[in-house]
Amino acid sequence: MGILVENISKSYKNVAAVKDISFEVKPGELYGLIGPDGAGKTTLFRILTTLLVADKGQAKVAGYDVVQDYKNIRHSVGYMPGRFSLYQDLTIEENLNFFATIFGTSIEENYDLIKDVYEQIEPFKNRRAGKLSGGMKQKLALSCALIHKPKVLFLDEPTTGVDPVSRKEFWEMLKRLQQKDITILVSTPYMDEAALCDRIALIQEGKILEIDSPEAIVKKFPKKIYDIYASNMYGLLTALKDFEHAHSVFPFGEFVHYTDKREGFDSNELKIYLENKNLQDVSISLTEPDIEDVFMELSRK
């Protein structure tokens, strides 16, 4: 059972949070909604999990209409919101038992589904949720979202504020869950996580910019892109933005990613220009684009 979104829009007073969005998540797919804070990801998740009603458009989750069949959807999906929303004064085990009871099941009945996740927090099962680390809170929230064996799993920025090791472990868990025929829709502001999805939708200011597999989206990048380094990063950014042939300039780790307006780009010309700006240790090398480069280019348009 997948997800079908058709022309969904939602506004808060005069602010449009989601603008005429359409996409489809196939059954068993790990689908990413990729975009920065304020892009409309959470609003869309709340519509699809029946917590908000759209102003226009329609959507189906696991075959059910989000308005007419909202009760069926609530029994068929798991939802992990962006903020930790479990009972912080209850222990790990008490939280799990509580959510299992709500759905008329038990930890034991669906243990095979949560086993990979729960085994990592089980040694601390008597610890209150409010006393857990960010990574452990994340694993507890995922266990609670899975306890009733949902057909579709919604994860709204599940790795925000979590350490890199826990992020990596979390995505490995998602890949294993996908093998159990669960459809997963995950949102994230981290562009590197986009490559871990089967398909992605890039979203900015409530609009979908592009939908495809991560590999196909990167292949569409229209220009050659260069890694540029200098010992003075701020001076480098300023000089590149002032360069008359600059198409795009943005920081990327220890480098600046640069594209030129011209087809025939001479890197020596640019190096001389930067050295004349008193920049030291200048290096320019051709590099491969990634999802973040594509997103920045689409955002410019």
Rank of each mutant, 00 (worst) to 15 (best):
K131D: 15
I92N: 00
N110L: 09
P150L: 11
S106I: 06
I121W: 06
P81M: 06
K115D: 10
F98R: 01
V152Y: 07
P164N: 07
T105K: 00
A145Y: 07
E119K: 13
V165H: 12
E157I: 05
A141V: 08
V117K: 01
L140A: 05
L132W: 08
G134V: 09
P164V: 09
L142H: 04
F98N: 01
L113S: 04
C144R: 00
K131L: 15
F84V: 06
A145M: 10
G82Y: 08
L132M: 11
F98I: 02
L174T: 02
H148L: 07
K168S: 13
L96I: 15
K139L: 13
F170G: 00
D112H: 14
P81V: 05
G82W: 05
E93V: 09
D116E: 15
E93S: 10
T160R: 06
Q88P: 02
V117Y: 03
V152D: 09
M173L: 15
F99R: 01
K149C: 07
T101Q: 14
R128H: 14
E172N: 14
G82A: 12
K149M: 05
N110Y: 13
N95P: 11
E122H: 13
T105M: 05
D163R: 07
F84H: 08
E157A: 08
T160C: 07
L146S: 06
R176I: 09
R167G: 00
K149I: 05
F84R: 04
R128M: 14
E109R: 13
K168I: 09
G104I: 10
K139N: 09
F99K: 00
R127N: 13
